[in-house]
């Protein structure tokens, strides 16, 4: 259970190798979370360290970490992942939906089937997982689903419109789900980072106002504590994109990237 000062106890991370997801988990563990479930594709070997660079509360025992196999594209198995997670750690205080893939627009242009497959991960799979999460959180009467959206979906650009359109769909889904859960005690937090410098964007030139996974995680944890519905990282992207939505398309399509 989340305590009166906003510290949580249990976390389920869908996409157990996600850099941003793991950073959020580490920060939550640093604030006292004691039971973590990492759900990931083909888990093998040692699970990723959740106490990396984390200062645990004084006197706290090391957190309990469980790993579950999770295949985003196998929607039929999603329900079981949640059931297992609840069996392992009890009520889920925070569920982080952090899995995803980023392909280049040129590759998608050349291989429409690959584009469709990635959209299925970045959007369709989140719909299934999100609805399962909502069912569990609604039953509990508490808990927050953290959805990693992106500014790419705030206004879709020609430079990455396959990825961007999936994120746009995901963002809309998360907003609707948050509204559907209003008054149940369960919540949805939408995180909208800009360009994140990390493994997923290796080799790409950073866009303006980039952030690191750590910065995204810090903003997410602050938003969780404050009970916010959405957070832009960095915060300046919020007003920037509200303006960019107003740009005429003739101008918008000339955006270099």
């Amino acid at each position: 259970m989340k305590n009166a000062l906003g510290a949580v106890d249990t976390v389920l991370l869908l996409g157990g190798r996600s850099e941003i997801g793991l950073e959020i988990v580490r920060l939550l563990v640093g604030l006292g979370a004691s039971r973590v479930v990492l759900a990931m594709r083909e888990p093998a070997g040692e699970p990723p360290a959740v106490t990396l660079n984390v200062e645990r509360p004084a006197g706290a025992a090391s957190p309990e970490v469980h790993v579950l196999p999770f295949d985003a594209l196998d929607a039929a198995s999603h329900g079981e992942v949640f059931e297992r997670a609840v069996e392992l750690v009890g009520d889920l205080d925070v569920v982080i939906s952090a899995f995803g893939v980023l392909g280049g627009q040129a590759d998608y242009d050349a291989d429409p089937a690959a584009a469709m497959a990635d959209v299925a991960v970045n959007y369709g799979a989140h719909v299934s997982a999100g609805l399962h999460a909502a069912r569990v959180l609604r039953r509990q009467g508490h808990g927050t689903l953290v959805v990693l959206s992106s500014v790419a979906g705030a206004r879709v650009r020609r430079a990455n419109f396959v990825y961007g359109s999936a994120k746009a769909g995901l963002d809309g889904f998360a907003q609707g789900l948050g509204d559907a859960l209003h008054g149940t005690g369960a919540r949805v937090l939408i995180v909208r980072p800009g360009f994140v410098i990390g493994r997923m964007t290796e080799g790409l030139t950073p866009a303006p106002l980039p952030s690191t996974p750590r910065q995204v995680a810090l903003a997410t944890v602050r938003a969780l504590r404050e009970g916010a519905d959405s957070v832009w990282v960095p915060a300046a992207l919020g007003p920037a994109f509200r303006l960019m939505r107003l740009l005429p398309r003739a101008l918008w399509r000339r955006m270099p990237r």
Binding site: A4, L5, G6, A7, L31, G32, P57, A58, G59
Partner: peptide, 19 residues
């Protein structure tokens, strides 16, 4: 007041001393 900054850490420190 619950909004006081650093309260969580302060009280956790006290828990430790009290225990």
């Amino acid at each position: 007041p619950a909004g006081q900054r650093g309260l969580s850490r302060l009280l956790r420190g006290f828990d430790e001393r009290v225990a």
